[in-house]
Design a protein around this nucleic acid. Structure first.
Length: 811
RNA sequence: GCGAGGGUGGCGGAACGGCAGACGCGCUAGCCUCAGGAGCUAGUGGAGUCAAAUCCAUAGGGGUUCAAAUCCCCUCCCUCGCACCA
């Protein structure tokens, strides 16, 4: 085979990228006549580097996008930049580059990289979230939320990251450490801005079950757990010798008669009060301090004991009237329920351990079916269901029924009632950092907290700021920014100097892509109604509870503001696996990064694209290995050479039936595999087809086979495909041609291979005409020599025939 | 601890009740070549054999079935998420 036309990705890839751009191939408009498909990959943070993890994400999306285009869909495939965030500010501190410059440079570099990969983005829709033209709308949404009470400021315990010198949302704390800098996060009482995501807790939970069938079960479970709804009751306990009450939450009101003491979180406001009253301030203060310091690791390992201090006070069990000592306990969390727990040591293991340690009374109120519990002999709490005892009028009830009966009894008596509790907390969105969207709020001594009026938006982030990374928000030192007139009374006032969490920007960007240049509102209703929701969203699993809950929340907020008319932003979600090298995730600190730039320079974009898809199915982690990519390059060369030699021969050769059968079989397999995102096996099928073509040789290959090959490889290796497509005499892009259809009739064979088993073991196979009857096949099967060897001298008990597949002879 | 997902050749992975190991990497031999980290051909789970036949093999054990990597039960191991959630 003489190769004239060499495969030179260095030349042909830029050539096609330019041509696509010139022909506006990826630019889309609303078109009511065409079915739309919105395909989105999670927008990147412009860190300045595109590594194979990014590449994989975007290539998975690009194959799907190109495939959908070829199927005739109107495909929206945008790209932008999640451009606010701490690394930019750190670069400013360390290298004296302004965050805007650092971010802008990175964006330019990364955009060039993505273009070199040939991803089918509509670049006209690109935006960076740090652009005032973007965040002005975010500020507007904030103002609207403020007006509805959905954005509010409160003083509470928040997560403080000493490394980043800012507060963090719960979703940004991983095992007690900062998601970004890994510093240990501390709890501090501070005044911060919150979004009332808990207002939507029920809907967010309900819709996980009802409206997200296209999401991976794993993500749905994580969201369900994160929202963490528990149903039960709240109950008021009067404090002995006082009019004050402590409200508790429990999922087990059926055990109320067994409550013998009460446990409070150290931070519970009543703890301080009671301590003061009973002269225990020092003792309890020390205990609280100790508890706050408990090393997160010890907590995780579970190797520290239940601990507590008696406050000196008692409360009254509202149904038994008995006095219950009130403890401050290390295992009660302030941010769940009410921070107060009624302790039922017989039916809760934690309470049991605590009661044993402090010699507190036990009282059995639930008897299980099988055994009989006794306070004196129990070695652990019984937490299961059973029949109520020692519970007055409720005796004899099943615990499941008693939960309802006691709850309504409490409600009737006005001392509690049914209640639900969520693990989900309101989203703390204020950050004491510079590089973020300013919170559009003004503080006036006279008028209080005043939102910036819509006509004054955006509140532009000032450019000239000093960066130290310490001592509060850099904005607070910019007097020209801080000092303003109150929009209401025109008196002297001060701006809020905190900025918004970067996750706010990414909570609604997918809507802005529909009309990125619209100047009257965050979204243009008509357009957003056409494109949204996102049909296919692709990104990393690490966003399962952060970003993916926030954007669902924003969808509901914006819907209720009349901006959107759907409930969920994303129909189908695919979470792709990480790219692993040398046993760990690619990261700068580990020094195991393979950059897109290096690989594209060395092998060309098509090779990189193919390999990142071939090495593993999209959801699984991908082990990067340098030899694998060589193999991919060889495969592309093989395709190239084959088409080339076919062209230099008699290129009009008609193929035989076997060739068209193979062609259509391959189209079928590749189509089905792309549909289910099994790109690795789709590529394998193309390889098999190419191997087959080499076997029969180019002289026996038909134009139809060659063109089909080029078409089915085009979503994966678009540059090479376009070039080959052109050299085979086609004028328009592969993208303008419909995806090849397979003809089921062409795939039907006139012979079929029947496997012969004896007792389930493979012994032989026969080729028979497809129309041969069952009985005939069975008879034939028993006659083959190998089958006879294994049947001989034994009685045949049964012969099983699986149509078109096998015969199993049971002896 | 709870929840989810996994465990298949030297490696990445196919098959997901019906021929285990598709496809690729790596490796071996041969061809071609001045040469090759190029290309081509053949081979490549283990035992066995000149070659076969045959037997064994999908973490381990048991079960269902004519037939199990696939379904069920138990055990072990790995990964991820949550973690004193009352």
């Amino acid at each position: 085979m003489v190769t004239e036309n060499r495969y030179e990705p260095k030349d042909l890839e830029p050539k096609w990228q330019k041509r696509w751009e010139k022909e506006n191939l990826f630019k889309v408009k609303e078109d009511s006549k065409k079915k739309k498909f919105y395909l989105l990959e999670m927008l990147p943070y412009p860190s300045g580097l595109i590594h194979m993890g990014h590449v994989r994400n975007y290539v998975i999306g690009d194959v799907a996008a190109r495939y959908k285009m070829m199927q005739g869909f109107n495909v929206l495939h945008p790209m932008g930049w999640d451009a606010f965030g701490l690394p930019a500010e750190n670069a400013a501190i360390e290298r004296k580059i302004h965050p805007a410059k650092w971010t802008g440079d990175n964006i330019n570099y990364m955009r060039a990289q993505l273009k070199k990969l040939g991803i089918s983005y509509d670049w006209d829709r690109e935006f960076a979230t740090c652009d005032p033209a973007y965040y002005r709308w975010e500020q507007l949404i904030f103002v609207k939320m403020f007006e509805k009470g959905q954005a509010y400021k409160k003083t509470s315990l928040v997560n403080w990251c000493p490394g980043c010198q800012t507060v963090l949302a719960n979703e940004q704390v991983e095992n007690g450490f900062c998601w970004r800098c890994s510093s240990q996060v501390a709890q501090q009482t501070m005044s911060q801005w919150f979004f009332k995501i808990t207002q939507y807790a029920d809907e967010l939970l309900k819709d996980v079950d009802e409206k997200l069938p296209g999401w991976p079960e794993r993500v749905r479970i994580m969201q369900r757990d994160w929202i963490g709804k528990s149903e039960g009751a709240s109950i008021d306990f009067k404090i002995d010798g006082s009019d004050e009450k402590i409200r508790i939450f429990t999922t087990r009101p059926d055990t109320l008669f067994g409550a013998t003491f009460m446990s409070l979180a150290c931070e519970h406001p009543m703890v301080k009060e009671l301590a003061k009253k009973n002269g225990k301030e020092r003792e309890i203060g020390e205990f609280a301090e100790r508890t706050a310091k408990i090393d997160r690791d010890a907590r995780l390992a579970g190797n520290y004991e239940k601990d507590g201090v008696f406050t000196g006070a008692y409360c009254i069990n509202p149904v038994t009237g008995s006095k219950m000592p009130i403890y401050a306990a290390n295992f009660v969390l302030m941010d769940y329920g009410t921070g107060a727990v009624m302790a039922v040591p017989t039916h809760d293991q934690r309470d049991f351990e605590f009661a044993k340690k402090y010699k507190l009374p036990l009282k059995v109120v639930i008897q299980p079916k099988e055994t009989k519990l006794s306070e004196n002999t129990m070695t652990e709490a019984y937490e299961g269901e059973g029949t109520l005892v020692n519970s007055c009028e409720f005796d004899g009830l099943l615990s499941t029924d008693a939960i309802k009966k006691i709850s309504s009894y409490l409600a009737k008596k006005g001392i509690g009632g049914p209640a639900v509790s969520f693990k989900l907390k309101d989203w703390c969105l204020s950050r004491q950092r510079y590089w973020g969207a300013p919170i559009p709020i003004i503080y006036c001594d006279k008028c209080g907290t005043v939102p910036v009026p819509e006509k004054d938006l955006p509140v532009i982030l000032p450019h000239d700021v000093e960066f130290t990374g310490k001592g509060g928000s850099p904005l607070s030192k910019v007097e020209s920014f801080v000092n303003v007139k109150c929009p209401k009374c025109k008196g002297a006032a001060k701006r809020e100097t905190d900025t918004m969490d970067t996750f706010v920007e990414s909570s609604w960007y997918m809507f802005r892509y529909a009309s990125p240049h619209y100047e009257k509102a965050p979204v243009e209703k008509k357009v957003v109604d056409y494109w949204l929701p996102v049909d296919q969203y692709i990104g990393g699993i690490e966003h399962a509870v952060g970003h993916l809950i926030y954007c669902r929340f924003f969808t509901k907020v914006m819907r209720d503001l009349g901006m959107l008319s759907f409930d969920e932003p994303v129909k189908n979600l695919m979470t792709q696996g990480m790219v692993i090298k040398d046993g760990s995730k690619m990261s700068k600190s580990k020094g195991n990064i393979v950059t897109c730039d290096d690989m594209v320079t060395k092998y060309g974009a098509d090779t990189v694209r193919l390999f990142s898809l071939f090495a593993a199915p999209p959801e699984k982690d991908l082990d990067w290995n340098d030899q694998g990519i060589e193999g991919m390059h060889r495969f592309l060369l093989r395709v190239w050479r084959f088409v080339d030699s076919w062209l230099s021969l008699a290129k009009k050769t008609e193929g035989d039936a076997e060739l068209s059968r193979m062609t259509h079989k391959t189209i079928k397999k590749v189509t089905e595999d792309i549909e289910r995102y099994h790109f690795n096996t789709a590529i394998a099928a193309i390889m098999e087809f190419v191997n087959y073509l080499y076997q029969i040789g180019p002289e026996k290959t038909s134009k139809d086979a060659v063109e089909s090959l080029i078409m089915i490889i085009s979503p994966f290796a678009p540059h090479a495909a376009e070039d080959l497509w052109e050299t085979t005499g086609n004028k328009t892009s592969t993208l303008k041609k419909p995806w090849p259809a397979f003809d089921p009739k062409m795939i039907v064979e006139d012979q079929m291979t029947i496997v012969i088993q004896v007792n389930g073991k493979l012994r032989d196979q026969i080729n028979v005409p497809v129309d041969m009857g069952e009985d005939e096949i069975k008879t034939m099967a028993q006659k083959t020599e190998k089958a006879r060897q294994h049947i001989e001298g034994k009685a045949i008990r049964k012969v099983i025939y699986v149509p078109k597949k096998l015969v199993n002879i049971v002896v």
